[in-house]
Write a protein that binds this DNA or RNA. Structure first.
Lengths: 342, 342
DNA sequence: ATGAAAGCGCTAACAG
DNA sequence: CTGTTAGCGCTTTCAT
């Protein structure tokens, strides 16, 4: 038979409530009884029943994490978010319930309504996400990773993509580039999705105009063939481009390959800067100068925010993480061209 | 205030237990009262409290899923497993609690001991996994994805990697190839890991010897550079190789690139067959003939198995999924060589 | 600083 | 086929 709180109380010669308080730390206990109780807990291998605890305290110590499934999102980054959320949640003595996006609004209502979870973290929020109104009136704290059109009454966190786009241009401008191109996400991402594509574009454009740099923008499907096509068009239509910003992880490597096949040496003929996870940047040849999506950091902070809300603290409704550009081998001054024949 | 079961009972003019039984279907109810209760549930927006339910019934309706984190595992496949497990679990009215491998044995003990979960699914089991003994004596059903050295008292499921390795060789043999190479996982995977690498190798070797085909084996780190290195060595040391089996997703594409750069046309000079997810096989150029890892199917069946165990049914302790080879563009008869100069 | 006792909301005997 | 009732194991007032 498994030990109950009463067994521990009896074993330690105290009241059940004392055991509870020792474990929760919700009131001061003399060091002596504390030790006695802890020893009994240890001796009996006591583990409190999660359901009983949840029923009595109205806290399940579980947070829901809603992960996206759809294409156009780089899967390893999702995993990275997820693991960082799990790790951070454990640090707050919480577990993580995994929901998929296709459970949609119903899933949110269910886990919140049944008190299965105390709070909700939603990844990959779209500009006009149908879940937003539901989250607004749900009686549970929520944190969104990504920004919807209106953040009123919500708590949102993400990389500052506008600043990231700008940082890439700033970097290229400082190196002396005068015309840069942005290879971005597929068209549908700009049209209805999370807004991060638009924000990157905005930062890119703003910084370029501040530096007096010419630009072009090239949406790109996330397939190798599309990358080749875009690279060809880009070099043909804008032969004076010396700097390229890539915001589309899956095509980063194929794009480098396409430039190489086109006879352009990176970084001698062409500098390439990407917004992508470090793992992607470090696995290309040459390694990519990049602004990373700090999935770990975002996941951790999302959990911190949601825990703060659970504790009744006030939190900002928008948190933008400052981008950090890491220089690697794919960028340098323009005009060092040493082009080999095609 | 949120509706309780008593509210529903009062509203419907029945006893609370009747409401419970209507919802659980655990005893027969006249269609008339059933409808009345359901209408009341609807009207009041009743949602049973998960904690209360778990306390009273000793069932949380949650299963734990332990996902791996370490390198050498292709992340998208993990995600695919995870989503298929979540979807399948929902089909059985269960939710999924996400655990990371680094919580290790403690995490298993915790979620099982606190009755947070009813059952456990563990991915990426190693040959001598420290969690095995714990799972054996835990008072909860468990299903392992992957095979440890000894499956006694366990329930394991995985792709039949031996059959998969053999299927690749069979395919190449049928096409007329006489010497084939296996490009496999990094050495450490063979040494201490899940056994699937070994099983693939065993099937590969067995089938080759059955067909009287010469073989060589080439462990390969999962980086593009390693792929290039291995390709070079392979072609240098075994110039008569016409068929290559790749069991290492991350290097499949780079390997094709390396063969191309070495002047070998696939499939004219060299046939390549991979064991990898369809998404990987379909995104290379040329598209890879492959045996897929049926993540969806494995996830679904893992859930079915664990649910069967929860229902007290007997289940086999080893389930091997038959491989399915899909022919694409990367394999053909040997000797059609049309090699262009390097 | 500690105890006693009243629930938390539901399920599952038991009773009819 | 349905109602009555006794817990499930814990937390948290209230009391001292």
């Amino acid at each position: 038979m498994v030990a109950k709180i009463d067994d521990v109380a009896r074993h330690a010669g105290v009241a059940p409530s004392t055991v509870s308080y020792v474990l929760s730390g919700k009131r001061s206990i003399s060091e002596r009884t504390r030790q006695r109780v802890l020893r009994s807990v240890e001796a009996l291998g006591y583990q409190p029943h999660a359901g009983a605890r949840s029923l009595a305290s109205n806290r399940s110590n579980v947070v829901a994490l809603v992960v996206p499934l759809r294409a156009g999102i780089h899967v390893p980054v999702i995993m990275q978010f997820a693991t960082s959320v799990v790790t951070a949640a454990r640090g707050h003595d919480h577990d993580v319930l995994l929901l998929t996006q296709d459970e949609g609004v119903k899933g949110l209502r269910r886990v919140a309504g049944t008190a299965l979870v105390d709070a909700i973290i939603v990844m990959d929020v779209e500009l006009h996400d149908p879940r937003i109104p539901v989250l607004r009136k749900l009686q549970r704290p929520a944190v969104l990773i990504g920004f919807p059109a209106d953040t009123e009454g919500l708590t949102c966190i993400d990389l500052d993509f506008a600043a990231a786009g700008a940082a890439c241009v700033d970097h290229l401008a400082a190196l002396g580039h005068r015309r840069v191109a942005l290879v971005g996400s597929p068209p549908e991402v700009y049209e209805r999705k999370t807004g991060f594509a638009r924000r990157t574009l905005a930062g890119f454009t703003r910084a370029a105009s501040a530096h007096g740099i010419a630009t072009s923008v090239h949406p790109c499907e996330d397939t190798p063939d599309a990358a080749t096509r875009v690279a060809t068009e880009l070099l043909r239509d804008h032969p004076d481009v010396t700097g390229v910003v890539v915001h589309n992880e899956p095509v980063a490597a194929p794009l480098l390959g396409a430039f190489r096949e086109a006879g352009r040496v990176v970084p001698d003929d062409l500098s390439v800067v990407a917004i992508c996870p470090d793992e992607v940047a470090e696995r290309t040849s040459p390694e990519l100068t990049s602004v990373a999506i700090p999935a770990d950091e975002i996941g951790r902070q999302a959990v911190d925010l949601v825990m703060a809300k659970l504790n009744g603290e006030q939190v900002p409704n928008a948190t933008l993480l400052r981008p950090r550009l890491v220089q690697r081998r794919s960028s340098g001054a323009p005009g060092r061209s040493n082009r080999r024949p095609v």
